[in-house]
Structures are given as C-alpha cells and as structure tokens.
Simulated scan of single mutants.
Amino acid sequence: MKKILLLLANGFEAVEASVFTDVFGWNKFEGDGTTELITAGLHPKLTCTWNFTVIPEMLVSDINVKEFDALAIPGGFEEANFYEDAYDERFLQVIREFHEAGKPIASVCVAALSLGKSGILEGEKATTYNHPTSIRRAQLREFGVLVQDDYIVVDHNIITSSNPSTGFDVAFLLLEKLTSLENVQQVKNLMGFN
C-alpha cells in the first residue's frame, strides 16, 4: 500500500484538499487499491478558509516520513492565517524531508509558497496563483524559483499549480506517479472525467 500524506495548514482551502481525498479514495476502492491517504496538521483541529472544521488523523510531530510515499499540500488564504502554519518551521521541515528522500510532492495554488519557503524550489521551475492582480508569483520568485507561466509545472519530483481549478489535475498527476496512466484513466472514467 502506498501512503500519501496530505499536509494541512490552518486556513487551507477545503476544495484543494478534497481533490486528493477523493482521487485517492476512489483509487483505494475502485482503482488498483494501492493507495491510502492520511491527513496531518500542526493542530488537533484545523479551520479551513471558509470556516469548515477538520480533525487531521495525525499531528505533524508524529509524522515519520519513511512511512509515506508522497506528499500533497493544498493552498489557502492569507486572511484565514494560512501562512502562519504554511511557513512554520515544523511544516517546512516535513517538506524538506520528503524532498531529501526523493519522494513526489504535489502542491495546489499557493501551497507552492511553502515549498519555496522550505528552500526546495531554489533554482527549480514552478508556478503558483497566477491571477493578474496577485503578488504570489513575485513572492515565489523571491525564493529563487524560476517561475513559469503555466497551468501546472512538473519539475523532477515536484508538482506545482497556478490556481484552485488545477486541483483534480494535480491529484491525478500524483496518482499517475504512484500507480500508472492506465489506472488513472480507469479512476477518471469511474469518476466521470472521461
């Protein structure tokens, strides 16, 4: 069984997290059955951007990266205090450990800023929230990232994306890295994407 850690910062967007829970849940029951997703956060209870409350299955302090095969991180809103957790050293250390182990890391929208802050994107290609009124791409560039004007960027083992609408595509890309394209097509078909 391949285990995926869904790392949640307080203030994360529920929809960006739910794409991972659904895609990997569908794979567990209807796909090849080889994946299990575990949620983790810095606190025993997390509040999403729009006040939805979530209880993660484990705390960051209890994570053993060796037990996991991949990392997924949804973005969130500054107004909901997302960056307090997303830039917390304990949160960033989890990212670094997955990267040092060469394991796939997938982020949606502004979660790329956590990757940038951790240092793993320095000199690498990536993207983040791309609305013309947003400062997020400039912020990502400040971390030494080669910011790309693309919907989704895959560089080595890291997936970054440009906005919340990319969520399902990012989750399916991560599933493909962990299983196969044929399996992803089967899960997409069952979920009504084909």
Rank of each mutant, 00 (worst) to 15 (best):
V19L: 06
L8M: 07
T127V: 09
A40P: 01
S162T: 09
V65A: 07
V153W: 15
T35D: 06
Y151N: 10
I95M: 10
D169A: 13
G102S: 08
P164G: 13
A70D: 01
R137Y: 09
T35M: 03
S161A: 11
G11V: 04
K28A: 07
L92W: 05
F91N: 11
T179P: 01
Y151A: 05
V15I: 12
M1N: 02
E67T: 04
M1D: 01
E124Q: 13
F77K: 15
T34M: 09
T35N: 08
N10R: 13
T35Y: 02
F24N: 00
H43L: 11
F24I: 02
M58N: 04
K125W: 10
K117T: 08
I38G: 02
L59P: 10
E57P: 00
T47N: 10
E97D: 15
E78H: 15
S161Q: 11
S134Y: 12
L37P: 00
L71H: 12
E97G: 06
S107A: 15
L115N: 08
V187G: 00
K103T: 07
L46D: 06
I159W: 03
K3N: 00
L8R: 03
R136T: 07
G33P: 04
I120N: 13
S134P: 14
G75M: 13
S162N: 10
N64S: 12
F29P: 02
D62F: 08
T35Q: 06
V65N: 06
A112L: 11
V153Y: 15
M58K: 15
N157R: 14
V184A: 09
G116M: 11
L92P: 09
F91G: 12
T35L: 08
V65C: 05
K2N: 07
E84H: 14
S118N: 11
T21C: 00
V19P: 10
Y151M: 08
A106I: 03
V60A: 04
E16N: 10
A171C: 08
V187D: 00
T21Q: 01
P132Y: 07
I159H: 03
A126N: 03
E124L: 13
F77P: 07
T53L: 06
F29W: 12
E124Y: 14
V170E: 06
N157Y: 12
K125R: 15
W26L: 09
N27V: 03
Q186R: 14
S180Y: 01
W50A: 06
E124M: 14
A101V: 03
R96L: 12
T53C: 05
E182C: 02
L92Y: 13
N130Y: 05
G76T: 11
K3A: 00
E30D: 05
G192C: 06
L71G: 04
S165D: 09
D169T: 03
L178Q: 04
V23H: 01
Y87W: 12
L190E: 10
E182Y: 02
G76K: 14
I152R: 01
R96I: 14
N27E: 12
L42F: 05
G25N: 02
P74Q: 10
N10G: 06
D149Q: 15
L178V: 02
D32G: 07
